[in-house]
């Protein structure tokens, strides 16, 4: 047994770093494959992006990034994503509380529906939302008399981003809230705390990391979103043009330098976000003793 393990490890060119890994075989093989696969599909292509950007002078990169249109696109993408994630945080909290704490007819259906944005392709969501919120659509028609225009305005982008980010808060908080130790709440109540105080002082601190994780996930997803947004946005530069669309437009204008620079910037941002998310998840795990 030990011999096969070693040969596999040698084949992959890696040796188990620690003896404490014990008896389970296949470290070298699976780690080798993992690194190979990761490199081929993710790391090398992404590195290509940085190499391409590095061909530019720092001044050029700076000019591209500080161009009004780039700045506005980034502002729109990050700003609206932040607002959408915040709305999802609040409304997601309501949804998750209703799903976990209350019993009502249609609860299971509501629960299942939360995942639709995960499963519904973004282009489909895009045309569906646009048709719905256009002035001659079901909802757009209702809002028009009040002077509220959703489709082809930044508000439309917000609607699309809320849609695609909706499941994240609910799905990250749900398991934590389900596992929440009821006795703590009961103890607080026995000690005379009001219901609101109990929720604020006892429940909230436990679920807070999960909430923040959900928020960060929804935000990360929204920043990069393209398919659902381009149909409804109106795509007006400096007003309703998101950063991913600007990348596509720069590409279509043969302006590779601009496209790659903006893309690399967004990539750095997503990487940073991921670290934040992972940190939050570890915090959540430490606090609740489970993976969220």
């Amino acid at each position: 047994m030990a011999e096969t393990t070693m040969s596999a490890a040698e084949l992959a060119g890696t040796a188990p770093p620690r003896r404490s890994n014990g008896v389970i075989p296949g470290f070298g093989l699976t780690m080798g494959l993992t690194l190979l696969w990761l490199s081929l599909i993710v790391l090398i292509p992404l590195a290509g992006l940085f190499f391409k950007t590095a061909e530019l002078t720092p001044e050029r990169i700076w000019t591209i990034l500080t161009a009004t249109r780039t700045l506005n696109a980034l502002k729109i993408s990050f700003g609206l994503s932040l607002i959408a994630a915040a709305i999802n945080l609040v409304l997601g909290a309501v949804v998750v509380w209703a799903l976990v704490r209350y019993d009502f007819p249609g609860r299971r259906l509501l629960d299942a529906l939360v995942d639709i944005p995960f499963a519904l392709p973004t282009a489909v969501a895009g045309i569906a939302l646009t048709t719905l919120y256009a002035e001659n659509g079901w909802l757009g028609g209702l809002l028009a008399p009040f002077g509220i225009k959703v489709a082809f305005t930044p508000l439309g982008i917000l609607v699309a981003l809320i849609f695609i980010g909706l499941p994240f808060v609910v799905r990250t908080v749900q398991p934590v809230l389900e596992d929440f130790d009821h006795e703590l709440e009961e103890a607080a109540a026995t000690l005379g705390a009001s219901r609101w105080t109990t929720i604020r002082k006892v429940v909230l601190p436990t679920v807070l990391p999960a909430f923040l994780t959900g928020f960060a996930l929804a935000f990360a997803r929204a920043v990069g979103e393209y398919g659902s947004v381009i149909f409804i946005a109106g795509n007006l530069p400096n007003v309703s043009e998101i950063a991913p669309l600007l990348i596509v437009i720069r590409l279509e204008e043969f302006r590779y330098a601009d496209a790659t620079t903006i893309a690399a910037t967004m990539l750095v941002a997503s990487f940073a976000l991921l670290f934040v998310i992972n940190g939050l998840q570890r915090w959540s795990q430490a606090r609740t003793g489970r993976a969220s």
Binding site: T130, A134, E135, N136, A151, F152, G234, N235, L236, P237, E241, V248, I249, E252
Partner: peptide, 17 residues
Amino acid sequence: PVLDTGARGSTVTFTER
């Protein structure tokens, strides 16, 4: 108010939307 990336996109915006 709207700047689509292609002529057809603009036509759809004007006519259908």
